[in-house]
Simulated assay, not measured.
Amino acid sequence: MIGSHVLVTGATGFVGEAVVFRLLRDKVFNPVAAVRGETRLSGLCRVVPFDMDDQLVLPSLSGIGVVVHCAARVHVMNEAAQDSLDKFRKINVEGTVRLARSAAESGVNRFIFVSSIKVNGEATLPGLSFKADDVPAPIDPYGISKREAEDALRQVSLETGMEVIIIRPPLVYGPGVRANFLSMMRWLERGVPLPLGAINNRRSLVAIGNLVDLINVCISHPEAAGNTFLVSDGEDLSTSQLLRRMADALGVKPRLLAIPSWGLNLGASLIGRRDLAWRLCGSLQVDISKTHDILGWLPVISVDEALRHTAEWRGPKPHS
């Protein structure tokens, strides 16, 4: 029996906050927001302190039926520290295991872990997609730490009987998005010429609404326990297609230059940014058939609808 109170960690973050708002909207489960600092959720639901980096700051789990664990140390661009992997492990592995064991000891029934597609790897070959049950092949410290956290959670589940569910999203976007996705929107709004009009890759993305909907299903679905699920919008786009459809949602005309991928890779290599060229030109596709087969889940929001919502959040485009 799943308890009615759901603790959401990382509730000031992009995904965690969206999960809390979905629970508040549906009024089926009572969200408890676990946060490290100030939050606009105060007054809307119960808020408790939680710091992944401090073993003394664990949330009270009394009366909690499900934990949705969104908090994590995420990518730190151009990090020079040699102990990068150790830093990720301290937060994403040790902090996660500490929370999971506390949850099991407190009688929590189910622990949902928001992991990352980086556990599968960094890229897929043309025509191939990552599957939930592929052998993991993480490369960067973040992906490695997420894989180790997954393995540790499965061990906790074996030892305690607490149900563990793992969800691996690719890039998440929607209202409130930051980082590279937001930068692309700004470039389009400003009419910046982009050399990305001839990219024929394929990448899976997931709208925040689709990810949150899957998490919501996993809170109570009886068949979810013990499984690892991949999630996406169900439509894979090239970088060029994404920019054109993003521009359409923003109501602007894209200025895309048809530079071939090899040219972009060469230029990026000359300035020491091969990683950027890979993200723009490489493919990363995910297969969500297992998610559908077990849970009956399909995306509830289309790419164009999600892009429109994101554009509306951005507000009116700047004047030329």
Rank of each mutant, 00 (worst) to 15 (best):
P59K: 11
V8C: 07
G282Q: 09
S115E: 11
P254N: 08
V164C: 06
R89M: 12
G282T: 04
E150G: 04
R154F: 15
V32C: 07
E17G: 12
L264D: 06
I294L: 14
L196F: 13
V192F: 09
I91W: 00
C70I: 12
L128F: 10
A80E: 12
R22F: 02
A80S: 15
M162C: 02
M52P: 09
L24V: 07
G174F: 04
F130R: 01
L58P: 04
N227R: 12
D236N: 10
W187R: 13
V8E: 02
G127T: 08
S232D: 13
V156R: 00
I64R: 07
N265H: 14
L298Q: 14
K87C: 11
L61K: 03
D213V: 08
G43V: 12
S116V: 12
M1E: 10
A11E: 06
D133W: 05
A224S: 13
K90Y: 15
R202Q: 07
G107N: 06
V252P: 07
E148K: 08
L23M: 05
P31S: 02
F181P: 10
K131T: 14
L85H: 04
Q155C: 05
L257T: 10
G121V: 04
V66H: 01
I208F: 05
P126H: 07
L295Q: 08
L125D: 05
R22G: 03
A149R: 06
Q155A: 13
P126E: 10
D248A: 15
V67F: 09
P49N: 06
F50P: 08
L256M: 08
I288W: 05
T228H: 00
P170M: 12
D151W: 00
S102E: 10
R203K: 14
D83W: 02
A132S: 15
I117Y: 06
W313A: 14
I271H: 02
L250E: 04
G191L: 08
H69N: 12
A249D: 03
G16M: 09
N30D: 06
L125G: 01
I139G: 00
L56E: 08
V252T: 10
R178G: 11
C70V: 11
I2G: 01
F14M: 05
G191P: 06
T239F: 04
K146M: 00
I199D: 01
F14Y: 14
R98G: 02
C218E: 00
P299K: 11
R46E: 15
Q285F: 02
F130S: 01
L85D: 07
R98P: 00
L153P: 00
N265A: 10
A149H: 03
R274A: 13
V74W: 09
V177R: 14
S102Q: 11
L211R: 06
T124K: 04
A198C: 08
N216A: 11
